[in-house]
Design a protein around this nucleic acid. Sequence first.
DNA 1: CCACGATTTCGCAAAAATGCGAAACTTCAA
DNA 2: TTGAAGTTTCGCATTTTTGCGAAATCGTGG
Lengths: 104, 104
Amino acid sequence: MTLKQRTAVFKALGHPARLRIVDAVTDGELCVCDLVEIAGLGWSTVSRHLSVLKQAGVLEDEKRGQQVFYRLRLPCVAELSSCLDRPATRNAKATRQNSKRCGS
Amino acid sequence: MTLKQRTAVFKALGHPARLRIVDAVTDGELCVCDLVEIAGLGWSTVSRHLSVLKQAGVLEDEKRGQQVFYRLRLPCVAELSSCLDRPATRNAKATRQNSKRCGS
DNA sequence: CCACGATTTCGCAAAAATGCGAAACTTCAA
DNA sequence: TTGAAGTTTCGCATTTTTGCGAAATCGTGG
């Protein structure tokens, strides 16, 4: 996955409304109307957020009848949030001493 | 971790320069001067990006002598990227039929 | 075919993010 | 103590993002 693609994923998740939406669909797909309530924003706004998430590959949609359902497409996204709860561990390997010449 | 905090982490990662920086320090801490080269941006700009990453809790810094070193503080961030490479799996549980009344 | 419900697209104004150079700091060495 | 190196803070202009309502789409049931 390219830098650009990964950036898009993180950027997509980096908005409270979108993250809330992603959390919501983690338990199963939901229609836009449900997500509008969950996000507490206007339809057009939610629609655009969903578009961002879909574009980034985080969600995928499926139209059934007159409504559109969104569900998680990226398997690990659900894990990411729990992952963030783990406390910091050490990874200070390769600690370098104050080098005289900066450009190492 | 609150929604706000998680949002901050993802937002921090959702910028190409910052993601590049995070990738770089995954292999060990680096001083700002190194990161300026890696990012290919001005000092002041990189400094602000680092500030964002630090504020979000993604990175932590340590001043040694006259230079400041940044390293990963969130253990799982390194895994996130590789995690994104895994292809989509199915999670369409709770698929609901086109409900007449939207509000479920 | 027509009206209606569900959703997306459009145009816009307000808010936030980006990048930059100048200036302010801090630390180390002469 | 003067100065240079490394880094951060400060305005500023430009670009992007966000939210909204109006209008355009699309499928369904008369």
